[in-house]
Design a protein around this nucleic acid. Structure first.
Length: 269
DNA sequence: TCGATCCTGTAG
DNA sequence: CTACAGGATCGA
């Protein structure tokens, strides 16, 4: 489900809905969600604590709890985190849930069970998140930084953008969309992309993420659930064989790093 | 840097 | 049935 914009939308909702709420109990329904930690650790560490802050770092969600603890949630491919009015009526795919003071439920739902929920002490956070790179929508993400990273990377552009250690938050969809807008071929080694296109790419990363954030925020507010592809109009992602909106040539799909990459062979040389 | 792996659901 | 899925990690 989520790349940075969707994770941000989840965080905004949580800030509105659960800030200040106490966790009565936490229950792990699927052991692998907690792995390599134990369900028992999560259950004892979370119970009785108050949710004092909601923070996003790349695609990581951090629920700051009282007593210097942090609940670290990663939604991976199919995860979602949201509030239900009554914890007794929770969805079948709730892999972990929390009963909040007053009877509401905070649900971690994840069909594929690739997602993770861990608990840490605040003092351990830096270590846990040491591989999470710069926030693309923050002031720390400068053209100089981006250019510097690009210059010393021989990775294909698409793989580079999805590598969370440099820029944190782009995934398969928005990496492809950014490359399309910048006219960069996804297979091109990053260090060989021209300075002008690096600058363009830097620019459109912000554009794409901001646009996607707006539509994701709106989509998540709808009664019912978020539907993939309904919110952000993709120019290339999942459009194999369809005409490019700019030049009319058929969108291509290739495999990179075990994932599908979509691009326009005309616009992205 | 590549492929396998974690898991399950759904579309073709 | 097979292929594939908006992610990340691990070992070869």
């Amino acid at each position: 489900m989520p790349e940075l914009p969707e994770v941000e939308a989840v965080c905004r909702k949580l800030r509105r809905d659960v800030l200040g709420a106490s966790i009565v109990q936490l229950r792990v329904e699927r052991e692998s969600v907690a792995r390599p930690q134990s369900p028992a650790l999560l259950e004892t560490e979370a119970a009785g604590r108050r949710i004092e802050g909601v923070e996003r770092r790349g695609k990581n969600i951090l629920l700051h709890l009282s007593g210097e603890r942090v609940l670290h949630v990663h939604l991976r491919m199919t995860g979602n985190l949201y509030v239900v009015p009554d914890v007794r009526f929770r969805p079948a795919l709730a892999r972990l849930w929390m009963e909040l003071e007053g009877g509401r439920g905070l649900i971690f739902e994840d069909s594929r069970v690739l997602g993770k929920v861990h608990v840490h002490r605040v003092s351990d956070l830096d270590g846990v998140l040491r591989d999470v790179g710069v926030e693309p929508l923050s002031a720390a993400f400068t053209l100089e930084y981006f250019r510097g990273m690009a210059k010393k990377s021989g990775q294909p552009a698409k793989i580079f953008l999805m590598d969370q250690r440099r820029v944190a938050g782009l995934g398969n969809i928005y990496a492809a969309e950014a490359l399309f807008r910048a006219g960069v071929n996804p297979r091109k080694a990053m260090r060989r992309v021209t300075a002008a296109k690096i600058a363009r790419l830097y620019e459109v990363i912000g554009e794409v993420l901001r646009e996607a954030m707006d539509s994701a925020a709106a989509a998540y507010e709808e009664p019912g659930r978020f539907v993939e592809g309904e919110s952000f109009p993709c120019a290339v992602y999942d459009r194999e064989g369809e005409p490019c909106l700019t030049c009319g040539r058929a969108i291509k799909r290739i495999a990179q790093g075990g994932r599908s990459t979509y691009y326009c062979p005309g616009c992205q040389r």
